[in-house]
Design a binder for these strands. Structure first.
Lengths: 153, 153
DNA sequence: AGAAGGCTATGCAAACTGTATAGCTTTCGC
DNA sequence: GCGAAAGCTATACAGTTTGCATAGCCTTCT
C-alpha cells in the first residue's frame, strides 16, 4: 500500500507543509522527481485527500464542541440529512449501529449558543430524541500520523 | 474576526489548495501582497492551523470507523491518556460530560480488526467499561466552510 | 533473458516567492 | 475637522521552484 518513503513524505509535509517538493527531496535525500511522483500517486490513490488548510473552529469563536446522538423517525434519514446539512455548526454526522440513529459533531460559541444549536437540531420533527455530551478536554489530539506509520508496507 | 475576503481566501485554498498566492490574488482580484498578508494573519491568529495534507484512513485500508465510550477509574485519566496515545487506531479522544468519561474515535481495517482494537482499549485495567458504536454512513461529510462563512464579520 | 517499473540526474523555460518601497484611501481617536 | 495608523494597490528584482522531458541504471516480475 504505502512504503517507508511515502510515510516520510507524509510526515514531512505534515510537519512542514509549505516546504515544497524540492526542499523535501533534499531533506529526504531522494531525487525531486521521486517526491513529485510519490506525491502524485498518494493523491491519485486517495491516501492524501487534500492539501486544504485546516481551520480551527475555536479560533473562529466556536469554543464548545459537543457530540449529539439523534433518534430519528424511521425512513426520515434523507430529510434529517438535509436538515443537518443546513446547520453550519454540524461539522460531521454519521449513522451508527446500536441505540440512537445518528451521531453528530457540533460546535457552538459557548454553552448558551450550544442550546441554540440543539434547539435547531430538534426543530426537525423527524428528530425524535436527542442527547448531547459536551467535549471537555482533548485527551488525544486529532492525529493520523501514528496510523500512517502502521499502514506502512 | 474574519471578513469576507478572508472567507474567500479560505474557500479558494480549500477548493484549490495548490493554487499559490499569485494565482489566488488573480482570482480574487486583489493584490498579491494582500492575499499574502491575509494568509499570514490567518495563520498567526490560529484560524488556519496548518496546511498539512489530509490523509484518508480508508485509503490506507482502515475502512471501519467507530466511536468508543469509555468509563474509566477515577483519577486514572492520565494513565488512560497515555494508553490511548499508544494505540495508533485512536484518532482522537475527548473527555465528556454526562455518563461515560471519554469518547474516542477509532478506526480499524474491518470488523474483526475492530475487535482487536477494542481488546487493546480494554487491556488497560483503568478502563472499567467500554461501549462502541460503528459508524455506517457519512450523513454529513466532515466540513468547516459553512461554519467559516457564518463566522464572517 | 527480456520487459516493465521505479529512481537518479540533468536541463530549461516559465512561473512563483520573498521582500521592499511608494502612493492612495479609509478608518479611528482626539 | 485633522493627523496618525492601517490596509490595499502597484511595482520591482533577485533567487528559487515548478512543470515537463529525457536518458541511464537497477531491481523485480514473467
Amino acid at each position: 500500500m504505502i512504503d517507508p518513503l511515502d510515510v516520510r513524505i507524509i510526515e514531512l509535509f505534515t510537519e512542514q507543509p509549505r516546504i515544497g517538493v524540492l526542499e523535501a527531496s533534499r531533506q529526504l535525500n531522494v531525487a525531486r522527481g521521486t517526491v513529485q511522483s510519490r506525491l502524485d500517486k498518494l493523491v491519485a490513490t486517495g491516501v492524501i485527500r487534500s492539501f486544504a488548510p485546516a481551520v480551527d473552529h475555536a479560533a473562529l469563536g466556536f469554543r464548545v464542541t459537543a457530540f449529539a446522538f439523534l433518534d430519528i423517525r424511521q425512513g426520515a434519514r434523507g430529510a434529517v440529512a438535509e436538515h443537518l446539512d443546513r446547520i453550519p455548526e454540524v461539522l460531521e454526522a454519521h449513522t451508527i449501529t446500536g441505540q440512537g440513529d445518528l451521531i453528530c459533531r457540533i460546535v457552538a460559541r459557548d454553552n448558551d449558543d450550544l442550546q441554540r444549536v440543539i434547539d435547531d437540531l430538534v426543530g426537525d420533527t423527524n428528530v425524535v430524541r436527542i442527547s448531547t455530551v459536551i467535549a471537555l478536554a482533548d485527551v488525544v489530539e486529532p492525529r493520523i500520523l501514528p496510523l500512517v506509520r502502521t499502514a506502512e508496507q
